[in-house]
Design a binder for these strands. Structure first.
Lengths: 216, 216
DNA sequence: CACCTATCTGAACGTTGTCAAGATAATCTT
DNA sequence: AAGATTATCTTGACAACGTTCAGATAGGTG
């Protein structure tokens, strides 16, 4: 261990060299995002929270945008974990695809500001962070779920289109589910998750490919 | 007419009282949004573009947020016009619903920064600006299109859910269609509109309710 | 005419992102 | 181990931002 200890709070006997500032800055960013909302997420506020000067972050991130991208990247990782867990927990394949969608939207709803940041950083970057690396990426998981639900793995075009469509649906629901306009309906349906399920069910991603048996 | 003439450019013989500043500010906001992107859209920049001091807008809008809401409101109005036009132009009912979706997404794609602003202002406000007033609201149009496509007008729950689902789908596609990741696929499908149609088609809003005939 | 109110300006304050110069500590070289 | 190098952090500064306030200017009303 080359450094003392990495604390988030501003201790009085804080060493000149923080030790692991980049990580601490990302953590501070998330903390501010949750506690004070997206409007309060400034570079200076993050530095303040981490207990360093406003210029310190520039030795670890080229930009404010770069820092935000790091926060967003952590968010994407957590999302992919949540999605993977939901997929594992599901019993059959059809349920699996459905659960992925619900898990995706629920994560976004539970971390609205973070999800917004994630989308923003995804817009700028060349490739979506969702399929960053490894087979455990969210992208790959939707792909596999679609295959195991009946889509022809050979038909690359169809598979790609279905994956994108699923993602679009999840993103759309994720961003609109928070509108106050729907709060009455949500309650009538027995909570937000039921509402999310209802909407996702209407977007026939599942209905289209996953009704091989009990259909007229 | 109580004032000289309302020009957007900063003329030298500009009168002390602008005449119709609120309108000019909204126009200036849109101009900056299109020309310089969303990052350049500041209160001061808008005032500069309109040829007034940075404090002038505060006599017409309570906030920067309030000004942005006005810009967004104009955007929602134009969107509803575009959607209405697309619905009129469509031949049969099924096509009508599909065309609404395509028109919605195309508008968002052609004015990405404006659409983002519109969504942002929709988040804050109590009710979505889409169904502001009149029967020509985007909300009402989707509703009617869904009815004329086969949904039971009596079943309020189902109708509401279908409307929301359609809107979520359109919003999701609208925001994700711009990802560079898809540019290759878009070209392969023969342009962005074809791509949009393909994705929207996969989100079985239409498939679910509008395939009474040629289905196994 | 005088008065009143709406509108606009000028200057200011606190905050933000960013940079350059200098201080400090960890690491590398010999 | 001592000196040199590099990485890291601070201080101070700059322009731009949102916002406010006192004062200037005009239009409308008596």
């Amino acid at each position: 261990m080359t450094h003392a200890d990495l604390t988030l709070e501003t201790t009085d006997d804080r060493p000149y060299h923080h030790g692991d500032l980049s990580r601490a800055l990302v953590q501070a960013g998330r903390k501010i995002l949750e506690r004070d909302g997206p409007g309060a997420l400034s570079l200076r506020a993050v530095a303040r929270e981490a207990g360093v000067s406003p210029a310190a972050p520039y030795h670890h991130f080229k930009d404010k945008c770069d820092l935000m991208a790091a926060v967003a990247s952590e968010g994407w990782h957590e999302l992919s974990v949540a999605v993977a867990k939901a997929r594992m927990a599901a019993t059959d394949a059809r349920h699996g695809l459905s659960e992925i969608g619900v898990a995706y939207v629920c994560f976004a709803r539970q971390n609205p500001a973070l999800y917004r940041l994630m989308y923003d950083s995804a817009c700028d970057s060349e490739d979506m962070p969702a399929n960053a690396k490894g087979e455990a990426s969210g992208w790959g998981q939707v792909r596999e779920a679609l295959i195991s639900v009946g889509i022809d793995p050979e038909d690359d075009h169809e598979l790609k289109l279905a994956t994108i469509a699923s993602w679009c649906a999840a993103h759309g629901v994720a961003e609109m589910a928070g509108f106050k306009e729907f709060s009455a309906l949500k309650e009538a349906m027995g909570g937000e998750e039921a509402f999310i399920r209802g909407i996702l069910d209407h977007l026939g991603i599942y209905a289209r490919h996953a009704r091989p048996r009990h259909d007229a």
